[in-house]
Simulated scan of single mutants.
Amino acid sequence: MDTVNIDFVAIDKNWDKNIADYHFDIYHLSGWIAASAIVDKGKPQGIIAHYKNKKVFLPIII
């Protein structure tokens, strides 16, 4: 059975480097997420789901 691995990571410049090789929009970039976290009074957090050779990047604000 195939498994999905989930990593919780910081939203920072390394996040931007990781998503650079994939299709993304401005809402995935660390600067946008940091600004949104200030407005929403939360902490930015990244979720990366790995399945076989695919990745899903999900930025959230906690």
Rank of each mutant, 00 (worst) to 15 (best):
Y22H: 12
Q45V: 15
A49V: 08
I19N: 02
L58T: 09
K41T: 03
D12Y: 05
L29K: 15
K41M: 06
T3G: 09
N14I: 07
I11G: 00
H23L: 10
M1N: 06
D25K: 07
A35K: 14
D40V: 00
K17F: 08
Y27F: 12
I48L: 07
L58A: 12
A49D: 01
I38T: 07
D16C: 06
F24T: 04
I6G: 05
I47M: 15
V9P: 01
G31L: 05
I26T: 10
S30L: 03
I19Q: 01
G42C: 04
K52W: 01
L58K: 11
K43P: 00
S30M: 04
K54Y: 11
D25I: 05
Q45R: 13
A20I: 02
I26L: 14
Q45K: 14
A49Q: 06
Y51A: 05
I19C: 02
G31N: 14
V9H: 02
W32F: 15
G46F: 02
I60R: 09
A10P: 07
N5A: 12
G46W: 01
G42A: 03
I6C: 12
A35L: 10
I61W: 07
D16M: 03
Y27H: 11
D40T: 03
F8L: 13
F8K: 11
A49E: 03
Y22E: 04
K52A: 08
G42W: 01
I61R: 13
A20D: 11
A10W: 07
F24D: 00
K54S: 09
W15P: 01
W32C: 07
V56R: 12
I47T: 12
Y51I: 10
N53L: 07
G46Y: 02
F24S: 10
Q45E: 11
S36P: 00
I61P: 08
F57I: 04
S30E: 11
V4T: 14
D40C: 11
I33P: 01
L58V: 13
D40F: 13
A20G: 05
H50G: 00
V39R: 13
D7M: 08
D7E: 15
H28Q: 11
K17I: 12
I62M: 06
F57S: 01
V56I: 10
P44E: 04
V4M: 15
K43F: 05
W15S: 01
H28Y: 15
Y27P: 00
Y27S: 12
G31F: 04
I62A: 10
A10N: 15
P44D: 05
P44A: 04
Y27W: 06
G46A: 10
I11A: 04
F57M: 05
N53V: 03
D2W: 06
I61C: 09
A20H: 03
H28G: 02
